[in-house]
């Protein structure tokens, strides 16, 4: 196990290096000059001033040198300053990240809360009417783009019923209730598609688990169906689900971006959106690296989760 974690860490570092470098190259190769973000176009008449600013921000150094400098600072936890606001990138991230994470976690939580019982029940009733209805809904949920789901929810629950605000964000420091009200719709928009994916994955694993002999032998002990399903059937059926939850973090990152755009939520996703618009390269760079790290770490956690779930894997590792 320590060996595995070590190799995972190595992979994380390598991935981060490659991704940060790739972003850096992309930023520099693509059209759009950082100087435009620093000085308004009409103020660029003064060549000397422009040169001075370039020098100051190190824009004249070769790309590799600049990347090295960025990397050197990054290891010490300094991701540089935003070209637009002058604020440290890390400060902005720590300010906004909790918002995005909250939406993501609530969304995953809601999805699992829905998908686990529904998926188990669907498998239990395989081929019967409830299963067919559930599978139909799952197929539909799978086909819902996040922004369409979001718009539907806004239309019904915000515009028509007025239960939740259509846009905006309340930090938990403003009270848990108001906070949850602003989390609800964005999280639900993400959760519907995710829940559909999770349900399908769990259902299909559960169906094969239920054909196992140990399920029959558990039933032959006179345990209730519910006990057999959840205490015997669920755990062996979780492996694919856990993998998919890990992988879905990738989709969810894209999803939160859309949701934050749709609901005007000041999270990381919206920040990267505006950073891209403003050519705020330091910000883009910092957030991209952060997202990548998050993705890789989550999937490492997934591998550890395997071992917790399945004692046989624990042993062979």
């Amino acid at each position: 196990m320590p060996k595995m974690i070590a190799s995972r860490l190595l992979r994380l570092v390598l991935t981060l290096l490659t991704v940060s470098f790739a972003t850096f190259v992309m930023v520099n190769v693509l059209p759009g000059d950082a100087i435009n973000a620093l000085i308004p176009i009409d103020a660029q008449q003064d060549q000397e001033f422009v040169e001075q600013v370039r020098e100051e921000w190190g824009l004249n150094d070769p790309m590799l040198v600049r990347y090295g400098r960025w990397l050197g600072n990054a290891v010490t936890g300094d991701l540089g300053d935003s070209i637009v606001t002058g604020q440290p990138v890390t400060a902005e991230i720590t300010h906004r990240l909790p918002i995005t994470l909250e939406i993501m976690f609530v969304a995953v939580g809601l999805s699992l809360l829905l998908a686990v019982p529904v998926g188990v029940f669907s498998a239990y009733r395989e081929g019967k009417r409830p299963d067919r209805v559930i599978s139909g809904f799952a197929q539909l949920g799978l086909s819902m783009p996040v922004f369409v789901t979001g718009l539907i929810l806004i239309y019904i629950f915000a515009l028509k019923l007025n239960w939740f605000p259509a846009t905006g964000w309340n930090r938990p420091s403003n009270g848990i209730g108001p906070n949850l009200k602003t989390v609800a719709l964005p999280a639900m928009s993400l959760a519907i598609t995710e829940a559909a994916v999770y349900t399908r994955v769990l259902r299909s694993d559960m169906i094969s688990t239920l054909k196992e002999n140990y399920i029959l032998s558990a039933r032959a002990k006179g345990l209730t169906d519910r006990f057999v399903l959840f205490r015997h059937g669920l755990r062996p059926s979780l492996l694919t689900l856990v993998t998919v939850v890990g992988l879905s973090v990738g989709t969810l990152i894209g999803g939160t971006l859309v949701v934050e755009f749709l609901f005007a939520i000041p999270g990381i996703g919206r920040r990267i959106f505006s950073a891209i618009y403003q050519r705020d390269f330091m910000m883009v760079q910092g957030i991209t690296v952060l997202i990548t790290a998050f993705y890789v770490i989550v999937n490492t956690v997934v591998d550890v989760a395997y071992m917790v779930i399945d004692p046989r894997i624990r042993r062979t590792n």
Binding site: R11, L14, T15, T18, V19, A22, M26, L30, P31, G32, G250, I253, G254, L257, I272, F273, I276, Y277, R279, V284, I287, T288, I291, T292, Y295, V296, N299
Partner: peptide, 24 residues
């Protein structure tokens, strides 16, 4: 595969946004 893995851990939508925004 190493290349593929890196590409997969790169947030695709962010990359896509990035490129499409910057392209004139």
């Amino acid at each position: 595969m190493a290349f593929v893995d890196v590409m997969l851990s790169f947030p695709a939508l962010v990359g896509l946004l990035f490129v499409t925004t910057l392209l004139e």
